[in-house]
């Protein structure tokens, strides 16, 4: 098996995650889909690291994880406070930008 297949898998996971973001209305699920996309990217980075024979890809994946952790903390805090004020976790309810 060619290790390139890992990249195909990463692309597939990324696409599934992106589509999930667009389809789901529950903010928490949307957030999970974003995490899925990030993980797909991480997988690609790790495979790239193997491809090039150095550890830089892994470093990037590591940093991505750190940033993702920070993002999750803040994002979930936002969702909780949003739910507190609106009693809803639907992303469609936050459509005040409409005329």
């Amino acid at each position: 098996m060619n290790p390139v297949n890992y990249l195909y898998l990463a692309a597939l996971l990324f696409t599934i995650g992106a589509t999930g973001v667009l389809i789901r209305r529950n903010a928490i699920v949307v957030f999970m889909c974003i995490e899925l996309m990030l993980n797909a990217c991480n997988l690609a980075f790790v495979v790239f690291s193997r491809m090039h024979g150095n550890l830089d890809g892994q470093i990037i994946a590591f940093f991505t994880m750190v940033v993702a952790a920070a993002e999750v903390v803040v994002g979930l805090a936002i969702i909780v406070s949003l739910f507190r004020s609106r009693h809803s976790a639907s992303v469609d309810d936050a459509s005040l930008m409409k005329l």
């Binding site: 290790p3 898998l9 999970m32 993980n39 991480n42 790790v46 495979v47 690291s49 590591f62």
Partner: peptide
């Protein structure tokens, strides 16, 4: 998969941080 690709550290971190911490937060 990380482990399989030689990223041993990341593989463990993935389990500890992601599945262990972040998903629990979710």
């Amino acid at each position: 998969f990380y482990l399989a690709n030689g990223a041993y550290f990341l593989g463990i971190v993935q389990i500890v941080v992601y599945t262990g911490a972040i998903m629990m937060l979710f």
